[in-house]
Amino acid sequence: MLATVGATTIRTLESMGTFSRFSWKTVSQIPVACVRGRDWRLLMPQFYLIGVRSVPVMVVTGVFVGLVLAAQAADQLHAAGLETRMGVLVNLSLVKELGPVLAGVMLAGRVGGALTAELGTMRVTEQLDALRVMGTDPVRHLVVPRVIACIVLAPILTMYCNMMGSIGGWFVAVIVHHIPSEPYQYYTAEAIEKWDIFSGLTKSVVFGGLIGLISCFKGFNCRSGAEGVGRACTSAFVTSFIVILITDFFMLRLMQDMYNTIWGFKPVL
């Protein structure tokens, strides 16, 4: 019993150690890759695969989150006579929390799984070894461009998600519940600060990087066979999901502290 716990702990610590080393190896190569023109060739297909192909998913997610948020808030706010402030609630939750987190989760599912499957298959069919044998570092050649693409695209996809969500919220408020559009927009613009948008997008950059690193790491270390690849994909998604939620909490606290230190506490409603 004790031995099992000990062994599991050691294994977890060990894999965290290898993950840290893997991440450092990747991150330290990112600046070079951005400058070196030769590596841009590797980057473009990833932007297409990770970015362009993810837009529809983000649009659907965003719209429905906006619809649900607004529909849920409508009755309560109406009862309190605050329906013109509905936009504040909907858009603030979107921009600060739901946008980045949901975009992150969708990215982890749609892109993370694909990255893990691709790199995992390359590992089990010895393509990673083939790269190494030809003197090419697979981290530089495969991981760095994918992680860069995730970092750059996560905030962009988050913005899509936010934008579609606020359109969805506006639709429910103004079209369905006949709340006048002008005050709805006025109060929303009043309440949401650049800081809120900035902090949401900062989080999404971090999520993007983590998703890219975790997915590539799981692919690089997957066990042999089709089953190994499948398992690695599941594990990549679950790990990314949990890491997103945990990171979200800590970054929220960090961002709040930063805000309160600089500008002091400000009530929204």
Binding site: T121, M122, T125, E126, A130, R132, V133, G135, D137
Partner: peptide, 23 residues
Amino acid sequence: STAALAKLRRRFGYLFQLSALFD
């Protein structure tokens, strides 16, 4: 070192048992 090994490996050709072509 990793860098020296990468350079050295270019003087080798390696045919993998299952080909390992980049798909």
